[in-house]
Design a protein around this nucleic acid. Structure first.
Lengths: 334, 334
DNA sequence: TTAAATTGATAAAACGATTTACTTACTTTA
DNA sequence: TAAAGTAAGTAAATCGTTTTATCAATTTAA
């Protein structure tokens, strides 16, 4: 019941292993194998259902046709959607994706990089966290294509694809202000990554530009990875103790927790209290009233990532790194 | 800049490759390598950051420490959550997961199985579709552990882990009836898989048991993979043209579409009109009013799958297949 | 007519590990 | 004191491919 090997095929066809290999890899013409032999071997391959052992192939060639995708958490809909899009597009080009979640844990991320390395993945797509700069630098030194997405590591000179979070969150706050809001809260997380900082910066800049007082106490930084119950408690405290007439959530799961709080407090979203979420979520549109949000162009991000990867893989020489910033869209719903 | 190989380590340590291999694999004692040599080699391995090439290892040993996970769609929250749980649990046992989505496409599923096979994955976790029975049977003949989940293929004699959909949907309809509902609709999909059929059967049985008239026209079978816009149109037609005072949705995404319709029609969920969803979704709890749903015990399902896999992998001889049905829970919200 | 090029094919090395079967030098045992 | 056993370690086969040389026979070029 063992799987067939190239040797079995060669034996059946009464030719050498080399010949079979050339035919499998489409090098038959180039290596001047006669049409008759090509036909014969191909027939045997099809009839027998022989599939080359990719492990052996990888060992010999040093590449795997696999792209490694490292993200924070596959169960977050932002990541699972983008994973799906990337998988689809890669698949069409003959590449497979292996993915795994870091849970924002540096050690797990490092382990994953090592694991992917030892599996000889051809390229890496990483939503990085602080603390793995060095590991990523090593990958780059080894000349492996690396694309960061969602978050950038500024001290690293890599390819990056992401949305313009600064502008998006600036616009969100701007829209609050234009609607007469004065006490605008920001619920964000304490993780120290570029894209979260940008969201904060955009918030602050808009407040300052429009000459509103910046109130430290309206910015809530939720510890990452804490249980949702604690998050809900913290947000509840904010809403109860502070005058707030608008709130921007910096991630979709924070917005979900926030909406749960509003529901518990029976606080209505109306002309006196506005909410904008981030990254969109089915619950936002469905909510009564619908929740406005900042939407990242997932399709475009995925497309761009794959385009960069394929370009790098096709190139013999190192292509200059590109930093691609795609505008995010403020979707106003009501 | 090439990666180190076992040969390099052997050279540095001035011992044979064999010795290094024994040490790496914890067979040093058994193969009577002296403590001094073990220490020396281990130090060199750690200092140099050497990581064995898993590809070469797989080629030689025939296994990969990778488990293949084949699901319908990673961007569906039911699957992404369970994927995350499975990944977590497998990781802790030293196994990695490769996953990929079939989109309910038989050919893609077959390709994936072949791909996983050629990558020598050690075991398969599959949410199957009709039409791949034969491919799965082949895996089983090759003595690879296979666990089906979410959906069963009755004509196949495999391991299966899933929820009791018949009972769950029976209970859902029962709860409608006990609240005086008479015209209970079912919005389901047309895919011909066990767990969807069970949901239908449970619905029908409850209707009949309680002596309500079974109305064909209240059962809406939405074609799988159709654009959401069409789904919304079909559901809208149902709600507009039929007297309906309760509706059970057979999947979470159908419920989401249904809720969108209700919103568009401005039809309220109240004592005159009830809704129950399936598989839960953040939007359900958050909805006003909250949506009741049938919840599958994800954690328990994931746990059970991994337990079965590990048992199979550990066993030298074939373990009898198990069919594990876990009760689903009807969560009544309001 | 001979050298050079082409055609059609193959043998053997290499990829980087694991594992089996040995070797050599000591110790025990009887 | 010879035979048997153990300790410490290694050489070489093997997994299933790809790829580089190489070969013999034929064709083309000069």
């Amino acid at each position: 019941m063992k799987a067939l090997s190239i040797k079995d095929i060669a034996l059946k066809a009464n030719v050498s292993i080399t010949t079979v290999s050339f035919i499998i890899n489409g090098k038959a013409k180039e290596k001047s194998i006669s049409d008759a032999v090509i036909k014969k071997v191909q027939k045997i391959i099809i009839d027998s259902g022989y599939k080359p052992n990719q492990i052996a192939r990888s060992l010999r060639t040093g590449n795997s046709n696999i792209i490694g995708l490292i993200i924070e958490d596959i169960s977050n809909s932002f990541f699972s959607r983008i994973a799906r899009l990337i998988e689809d597009k890669a698949y069409k080009k003959g590449y497979k994706i292996i993915y795994s979640s870091t849970e924002n844990n540096v050690e797990k991320a490092q382990e994953l990089i090592n694991l992917f390395k030892s599996r000889k993945v051809d390229a890496y797509i990483i939503s990085p966290i602080k603390g793995i700069e060095e590991d990523i630098q090593i990958l780059m030194n080894e000349n492996k294509p690396v694309i960061l997405f969602d978050r950038n590591l500024p001290q690293l000179n890599t390819n990056y694809v992401g949305a313009n979070h600064f502008v998006a969150s600036y616009q969100a706050v701007q829209s609050f202000i234009k609607n007469g809001k004065q006490n605008i809260a920001l619920v964000t997380t304490d993780i120290d990554v570029q894209q979260i900082i940008e969201r904060y910066d955009g918030y602050k800049k808009a407040i300052v530009d429009y000459a509103l007082p910046y109130q430290e106490s309206l910015v809530l930084k939720i510890p990452f990875n804490q249980a949702e119950a604690s998050t809900i408690k913290q947000i509840k405290t904010l809403f109860k103790n502070k005058e707030v007439d608008a709130v921007l959530f910096a991630t979709n799961y924070l917005a979900i927790s926030g909406l749960k709080v509003l529901k518990e407090l029976d606080k209505k979203i109306d002309e006196n209290f506005s909410v904008i979420g981030y990254d969109d979520h089915e619950a936002f549109e469905l909510h009564t009233p619908s929740i406005s949000t900042i939407q990242q162009p997932l399709e475009e991000i995925a497309e761009t990532i794959i385009r960069l990867i394929l370009a790098q893989l096709a190139a013999k020489t190192k292509i200059p790194d590109q930093q691609i910033i795609i505008p995010a869209k403020l979707i106003i719903r009501n």
